[in-house]
Design a protein around this nucleic acid. Structure first.
Lengths: 339, 339
DNA sequence: ATGAAAGCGCTAACAA
DNA sequence: TTGTTAGCGCTTTCAT
């Protein structure tokens, strides 16, 4: 042992080795769970580790092994309301909890507007083993191409150039709309209107298409349609447009609970009874759905689980396992008072 | 240059040095902004960096400099609803954005129930330079002691053993309540009831005390009081208790918008007019405050900024600057329809 | 102002 | 199974 004993600070592998009467290599093997060690060695190392309170130095490990054991969670800053959106908040929570179950570390990366390349440089600089990108409510798809440089998993199907190669976890958004429409049909609604999400985003597009198809398949009529931006204000405005169109409808599919919440406010102001006159079904079981008046019948997507699954898929890819490029999470209808 | 040129992968400092015709040491100085380099050296290095697309390897840097340039965001897992609470979501957002402005990296640490020491080990293992702990809605104060081992900054004044040494960023919660009560007084309310938060938490305690004092100082009467758990359900239950007490009141201070939201639901069910019969003021300008019926007059605390300030304070401490142990953020009254 | 050289603490061939 | 020995890519004295 050529080095001087460290006075303060954390104990090193070398000190553990000395205490256990073994070499650093063997201690390293034990720490990393290698099968090529004797039970005695394991016991001796564990004893020494406990005694010294040894904790491996992450940086040294990363440097030597060339694996960072950490993953990035990329959050587009232009999604200003990111955290006030329950979908994001839940997905982030799921990702964080999912990461905690592994030996990986989750680094939050908010893309900076002042220096847009900062995030990209960080990701390409070998600082992480992979990245999670939650792009549900954003049309920022500039990270799709990153998938060629390191493992990336998207939350929500990305759209645009190269998206057909991207790994993602999502729900079947056409089926989300279908489930909603069929429920309205089963309640006797005949003319179903739609408040769609942005048509630049997969969730907006697919739910809208799902509405169109399901209405057709159920032999119903298409009511008027309007596009919102997934916010309550957008939903309110869309509802005004629906009413202004003059086309009648007795059912409404709103592509997000936030929009439905805003839409219901407009209906209440105009004295339109829900579910009496119009039955409404939406997507997302969050506080907007639960606290609307009346509470919203909705298609629930498992957002926390979705975030967790993103981690599972990413870690599998990092560690070289085969995983399907697309993971679809189950959905379910939650009946409440709105339709 | 003894090493073999790397075929793929990121370029190294050594390659930059070769390209710039300088030593690694000088390149390192330039990269780290040392003043002891000539302008020519800076130019040469920058050119080489741009040409090669060089990005420093974080692990190597950490290992050599013994500074990790990363901070942890500790989130108690028992705060199950963490992310669905707008206060937390905003504070986390602020912290993430604040970190993005620095050269630090933010690592999310959800404390695992299955292995409660995992977080602690990670923090003590020299993996981060400091930690942020947001404990507003939690009485988990087991991280106070961590402050003795590495720089820690709390969001919300911690309570319990050792808390008097803790660095934290918060609002003046007594003043929060005072502002609310004085507003009610100015609107002619004479008997002010209180729905308090958990008395195990600073925000709960201080706002309750603030209510008591302010009512006294304004020469008003104390109406009935009840304790909730900061959730809408807790607020609803507390309101039922207030009404059941039989004590009259024409003003209400609810210590959180979530509780106020729940309380107003009960009043609406019982046909009590707000603000006609009872004027209500609360805290937090979030979704719950804005979407209650009627919308809530509330004391706004700058949660996003608070999260950002936590980072500022922590970084200052890490880098050895003097910072006040306590940082108080400004608050303001937002008038809406409830009182 | 610059360079040479010695590590930071660990992993991973390669030998034994 | 264990130990020896090179580094991983960077920072940082210490000379020059």
């Amino acid at each position: 042992m050529s080095r001087i004993e460290r006075i303060g600070g954390a104990p090193t592998l070398e000190q553990v080795a000395a205490a256990a009467g073994l070499s650093r290599a063997t201690v390293s093997r034990v720490i990393n769970g290698s099968p090529r060690v004797t039970a005695e060695a394991v016991a001796a190392v564990n004893a020494a580790v406990d005694e010294l309170g040894y904790v491996p130095n992450r940086a040294a490990r990363v440097l030597a092994s060339r694996r960072t054991q950490s993953i990035a969670l990329v959050i587009p800053e232009n999604t200003a309301r990111f955290f006030s959106d329950p979908y994001f908040a839940s997905a982030v929570q799921g990702a964080a909890m999912g990461t905690a179950r592994t030996d990986y570390t989750l680094t939050m990366l908010i893309t900076s507007e002042s220096d847009p390349d900062k995030t990209r440089r960080y990701l390409r600089g070998g600082n992480v083993d992979g990245a999670l990108v939650i792009s549900h409510h954003s049309d920022d798809r500039s990270y799709v191409e990153l998938g060629d440089e390191l493992p990336v998993v998207f939350g929500g199907r990305p759209v645009g150039e190269g998206a057909e190669r991207a790994y993602y976890v999502d729900v079947d958004n056409e089926e989300v709309a279908g489930m909603a429409v069929r429920h309205l049909a089963s309640r006797g609604r005949r003319r179903i209107a739609s408040i769609a999400g942005p048509q630049t985003m997969a969730a907006g597009l697919d739910r809208h298409r799902g509405w169109r198809l399901a209405v057709q398949e159920a032999g119903l009529e298409h009511g008027p349609e309007a596009v919102g931006d997934f916010t309550p204000e957008g939903g309110a405005e869309a509802m005004r447009a629906l009413l202004a169109s003059g086309e009648p409808f007795d059912g409404l599919f709103a592509a997000s609970a936030q929009m439905a919440h805003g839409a219901l406010g407009v209906l209440r102001d105009r004295g339109v009874d829900v579910p009496g006159t119009i039955g409404a079904v939406t997507v997302d079981d969050d506080y907007f759905a639960r606290n609307a008046a009346p509470p919203l019948t909705t298609v629930r997507q498992p957002t926390v689980a979705l975030g967790g699954r993103m981690v599972d898929v990413l870690v599998a890819r990092i560690e070289g396992s085969e995983v399907p490029r697309v993971t679809i999470m189950p959905i379910e209808l939650v009946e409440r008072g709105s339709g």
